[in-house]
Simulated scan of single mutants.
Amino acid sequence: MRAVQFSEYGPPGVVHIAEAEAPHAGPGEIRIAVRASGLSVGETRLRSGALRDVVPVAFPYRSGFDAAGVVDEVGSGVTDVGVGDEVFGIAGMTVRGANAEFAVLTSWAPRPSAWSWEEAGGAAGAVETSTRVLDRLAVGAGHTVLVQGAAGGVGTIAVQMAAARGARVIGTASEHNHAFLRSLGVEPTTYGPGLAERVRALAPDGVDAVFDCAGGALPDLVAIAGDPARVVTIADFTAAAHGVHLSHTAPVDETGAVVGGADAMAVHGLGSAVALAEQGRLRVPVAAAFPLAEAAAAHELSESRHAPGRIVLVS
C-alpha cells in the first residue's frame, strides 16, 4: 500500500510516499480502507525536528493519527462494527500511520451522515484533544472560555464543543479570520500585545478557563485567567515554567495506566461529536484537502499558519 512517511528531519520536502506493508487489525482493533486522514500541526513539528529532544521518533516515521474510511477488517473482541461500516477514529499512539491507503484504528465512532469524508477524516484527533482539555478545565454552562488560536485545526473544534456545553466562547485569530470565527459562534479578537485589555473589554467579569492551542503567550493567558490552574496548553512546551498544564497523551502500560506524565485520551468525545454533528451543532472546517502524493504541500500549508480549520489528505 502507499503511505506517507519521512526518513529524516527537515523541511516539508522530506515527506514522501513510500510502499509499505499493509497493517492488520489486532484484538480490539479495526482496519479501514482510508478515504481521508488528518494532518496535525504536531506532526509537522516532529518532521521539522523542533521536538526531537522532547518526542524523538524512529525513522522511517509513518504519519497520521486520525482517519475516516470503510471497515474492511475486524479484530477479535470487536462487536460494535462490521466490514463495510463507515467510521472515523484514531490510530494507536505508538503506531500511527493513518496517512495511508489502509490504517488500523484503536478508537472509532460511526461517520456522521452530516460529514463528508474530508470532514470525518480530520475530525477525531481534534475532537479527542478538545474533549480532553475541556474536561480538565471543567468547562460547563455559564462559563466564559478563551481559546487562543481559535481558527486552527483544534481551535475550530474546541470552540464549538465548548459552546455545546453552554459556555460563552471568545477566540483569538488574525483579523481576516474573524468572520469565520463568528460563523462558529465565537466572539473574536486579535492575539498579540494588548490581549488582556481586549479580553477584559469583552468579558469585564473575567474568564473561567483558557485553552491555548497556539503557544507563545502563556504569561498573558495566565494573567487573563487569574490562576495558572485555569489555563491548559497543547502547544507551549514552556508550560511548567508558568505553572500551566501541558496536555498531551501517551501510551498506557500493562495495567492501563498512562505513562510519561501524560493525560488519558478522551475517546468518549467521539460519541459526543457524532451526536452534535447529527444535530447540526458541530462541523469540521476543512481548510484544504490534498491527495496523498501531495503530502509535502500539505505540510507546507500547515506551517504557514494561514489555514483556517483542518488540513486533510485524501486516499
Rank of each mutant, 00 (worst) to 15 (best):
S116C: 02
A209V: 12
A229W: 01
G280N: 04
G309S: 05
G155M: 05
A288Y: 00
H248F: 15
D227T: 09
T189H: 07
G153Q: 04
E101V: 05
D253E: 09
F6R: 03
S7I: 00
A241M: 07
H306R: 15
R47F: 04
R35H: 12
E21Y: 04
L134I: 10
E118V: 09
V199C: 13
A162K: 08
G216Q: 06
A277Y: 01
D66P: 03
L221Q: 07
L134W: 11
E86R: 13
A3S: 09
V71T: 08
G10H: 09
D205Q: 13
V55W: 13
A288W: 02
G153M: 01
V95S: 14
A18I: 05
L195T: 10
E73C: 10
A58I: 02
G92M: 10
R182V: 00
S7F: 00
E278Y: 00
G271M: 01
R47H: 06
R230K: 15
F211A: 09
A114P: 06
G269S: 13
H306S: 13
R2S: 10
I17V: 15
T172M: 10
A293Q: 13
E86K: 09
V274E: 02
F102V: 11
S183H: 01
A22P: 12
G77F: 07
E294Q: 14
E119V: 02
A158F: 09
E29D: 12
G38F: 04
A120W: 07
A109C: 10
M161L: 15
G171L: 03
A277L: 00
A163M: 04
S40N: 14
S272W: 10
A123S: 14
S37I: 06
A167S: 08
V312Y: 05
G280M: 00
Q148N: 12
V147S: 08
H143V: 00
V267F: 14
Y191D: 05
A295G: 02
M93Y: 15
A120S: 10
P23G: 08
D227Y: 00
G64Q: 08
G256W: 05
V81Y: 13
E303S: 02
G309V: 06
T190C: 03
H245N: 02
G171A: 10
H268Q: 11
A167L: 12
A273L: 12
F6Y: 13
G261K: 09
M265I: 08
H306Q: 13
A25E: 06
N177T: 00
H178Y: 01
D66C: 14
V312W: 01
A50W: 06
V127E: 04
A264S: 06
T144Y: 11
G13L: 00
G194L: 12
G84Y: 10
E19K: 08
A20F: 01
M93E: 14
A240K: 14
F237V: 09
M265E: 14
A33H: 13
S76R: 15
L181I: 02
A273K: 10
F211V: 05
A288G: 00
R305P: 01
G260C: 12
E119D: 03
V252Q: 11
P204M: 10
W117N: 09
D53P: 04
A150I: 07
L282T: 02
H268E: 13
V74Q: 09
D220V: 03
S247F: 02
